[in-house]
Amino acid sequence: MQSKIDVAVMIGLGVPQSFRDRGQRVCWVVLINGEQRGTAFSSRAEAEECRSAWMRQLTMAA
Protein backbone atom coordinates (compact mmCIF):
# COMPACT_ATOMS: atom_id res chain seq x y z
CA MET A 1 0.00 0.00 0.00
CA GLN A 2 1.34 3.40 -0.95
CA SER A 3 0.91 6.19 1.59
CA LYS A 4 -0.31 9.63 0.63
CA ILE A 5 1.79 12.37 2.21
CA ASP A 6 0.56 15.97 2.16
CA VAL A 7 1.29 19.32 3.74
CA ALA A 8 -1.77 21.12 5.06
CA VAL A 9 -2.21 24.62 6.39
CA MET A 10 -4.00 25.25 9.67
CA ILE A 11 -5.59 28.60 10.40
CA GLY A 12 -7.18 30.16 13.47
CA LEU A 13 -8.08 27.86 16.36
CA GLY A 14 -6.39 24.92 14.62
CA VAL A 15 -3.05 26.61 15.28
CA PRO A 16 -1.41 25.43 18.53
CA GLN A 17 -1.78 27.80 21.47
CA SER A 18 1.99 28.31 21.70
CA PHE A 19 2.00 29.68 18.14
CA ARG A 20 -1.02 31.88 18.79
CA ASP A 21 0.65 33.26 21.93
CA ARG A 22 3.46 34.50 19.64
CA GLY A 23 0.92 36.10 17.31
CA GLN A 24 1.16 33.44 14.61
CA ARG A 25 -2.26 32.62 13.19
CA VAL A 26 -1.21 30.02 10.65
CA CYS A 27 0.91 26.88 10.69
CA TRP A 28 1.60 23.85 8.52
CA VAL A 29 1.38 20.15 9.34
CA VAL A 30 2.31 16.91 7.60
CA LEU A 31 -0.51 14.48 6.93
CA ILE A 32 0.01 10.82 6.13
CA ASN A 33 -3.12 9.21 4.75
CA GLY A 34 -5.09 12.13 6.17
CA GLU A 35 -3.70 11.89 9.73
CA GLN A 36 -1.38 14.49 11.24
CA ARG A 37 2.09 13.19 12.00
CA GLY A 38 4.47 15.07 14.21
CA THR A 39 4.37 18.67 15.21
CA ALA A 40 3.11 21.86 13.62
CA PHE A 41 5.59 23.98 11.70
CA SER A 42 5.84 27.75 11.55
CA SER A 43 6.74 27.74 7.85
CA ARG A 44 5.69 25.76 4.83
CA ALA A 45 9.37 25.16 3.98
CA GLU A 46 9.88 23.35 7.30
CA ALA A 47 6.79 21.22 6.71
CA GLU A 48 7.93 20.37 3.17
CA GLU A 49 11.32 19.30 4.55
CA CYS A 50 9.55 17.00 7.02
CA ARG A 51 7.32 15.68 4.23
CA SER A 52 10.41 14.80 2.19
CA ALA A 53 11.91 12.96 5.17
CA TRP A 54 8.70 10.95 5.61
CA MET A 55 8.69 10.11 1.90
CA ARG A 56 12.29 8.82 2.09
CA GLN A 57 11.53 6.80 5.21
CA LEU A 58 8.39 5.22 3.79
CA THR A 59 10.10 4.47 0.47
CA MET A 60 12.89 2.62 2.28
CA ALA A 61 10.38 0.63 4.34
CA ALA A 62 8.50 -0.54 1.24
Rank of each mutant, 00 (worst) to 15 (best):
W28F: 14
S52G: 14
M60K: 13
M1P: 11
A61K: 14
I5F: 02
L58W: 10
L31Y: 06
M55F: 01
A8R: 14
S3N: 12
C27Y: 07
F41P: 04
R25Q: 12
R20I: 01
E49S: 09
M1L: 12
R56G: 06
A62M: 11
M60W: 08
E48R: 08
G23S: 08
Q2G: 07
S18N: 12
R20K: 09
C50S: 10
Q36E: 12
S42E: 15
S42A: 08
C27Q: 05
V30Q: 05
G34F: 06
M55Y: 05
A45I: 09
S52H: 10
T59E: 11
K4E: 13
M60L: 12
R51E: 07
T59I: 06
E35N: 11
A40M: 05
D6N: 14
V9I: 08
A45N: 05
I32V: 15
M60A: 15
A61M: 13
E46N: 07
R25T: 10
R22L: 10
A47W: 06
Q57K: 15
G34V: 03
L31A: 04
C27K: 02
V30M: 03
I11G: 00
M10R: 15
M10G: 06
S43E: 08
A62H: 11
F19C: 01
I11L: 11
W54L: 09
S42T: 11
Q57T: 13
K4R: 12
W28N: 03
M55E: 14
A8E: 10
M55A: 12
Q57N: 10
Q17C: 07
W54P: 00
R20A: 05
A8G: 05
R56D: 14
R25A: 03
A45F: 02
Q2H: 09
E49M: 03
L13A: 15
Q24Y: 07
R56M: 09
M60N: 11
S3D: 15
I11N: 10
E48A: 03
R51I: 01
V9C: 03
